[in-house]
């Protein structure tokens, strides 16, 4: 996995709450058996005026001029500023894959849905929870200031504005450790293979019905 230590980038504001993963990447694009190539279909139904289809050249499609990411001032954004309960709904990891493929590295919101939050860390994408009033302030500053950038430091657990104002955020230490070092967490788990085997052996004795094959 790609490591995440520090990042500074242009901020794009997604000003609606309860953005679901169907909205982030609609189902017709989940038919791919790859992990890459989802970026052109990120927010597909909001971003284009026509109905998106898999294997289509999205550069030829009519853009929705009202959609925030289509505004020239947000071109190249890598920090997504969002509202509460971002990433709710389906567990599809295609959602963080699409955000990543588009070029986002950080998502800031007052709250995230659990599965989406977890999926981000598996893909080198950092979801940051900040207080609602701080997020409100960042929305205001982003909209007022063209070219508004934020600097994120995972080691220090801070988000810093262009004026030097800094906000700290929480992240649990295992996820932080894996992300900082770009660790493959399957490899980390397999260091405990003996422990897993002995747990399994004990369960085979005490709860043999868990190991039934179908009849």
């Amino acid at each position: 996995m790609r490591a995440f230590t520090q990042h500074q980038g242009l901020v794009a504001p997604m000003d609606r709450s309860n953005v679901d993963t169907d909205m982030i990447i609609p189902k017709q694009f989940l038919k791919s058996i790859k992990r890459t190539g989802f970026g052109p279909n990120l927010f597909d139904e909001l971003r284009y005026l026509d109905e998106g289809k898999p294997d289509q050249d999205s550069s030829q499609r009519p853009l929705n001029p009202d959609f925030v990411l289509n505004q020239p001032r947000y071109e190249g954004a890598s920090v997504l500023l969002a509202r509460s309960n971002f990433g709710c709904g389906s567990s599809r990891e295609h959602a963080p894959w699409a955000l990543d493929d588009y070029g986002f590295r950080v998502i800031i919101a007052p709250s995230f849905a659990d599965i989406f939050y977890n999926n981000c860390f598996k893909n080198g994408l950092l979801p940051i929870v900040l207080e609602e009033k701080v997020v409100d302030q960042l929305f205001q500053e982003t909209e007022e200031t063209e070219g508004y950038q934020l600097a994120i430091d995972l080691e220090a657990q801070t988000v810093t504005t262009p004026s030097g104002e800094s906000f700290s955020f929480d992240v649990d230490s295992f996820r932080r450790h894996c992300l900082l070092n770009g660790l493959d967490d399957i490899g980390v788990t397999l260091e405990d293979a003996e422990l897993i085997k002995s747990y399994e052996e004990q369960r085979r004795q005490t709860a043999p019905w868990l190991f039934n094959a179908g009849q």
Binding site: S91, N119, K122, T189, E200
Partner: peptide
Amino acid sequence: GDSHTSTHGAFGCLAHGIGTSEVEHVLATQ
């Protein structure tokens, strides 16, 4: 790898949806 895995909790199970990276993790490590 489906968020509606919570369904199985009706049986007094601890059941939940996971992402694809976790599908791989469960396959590899149980």
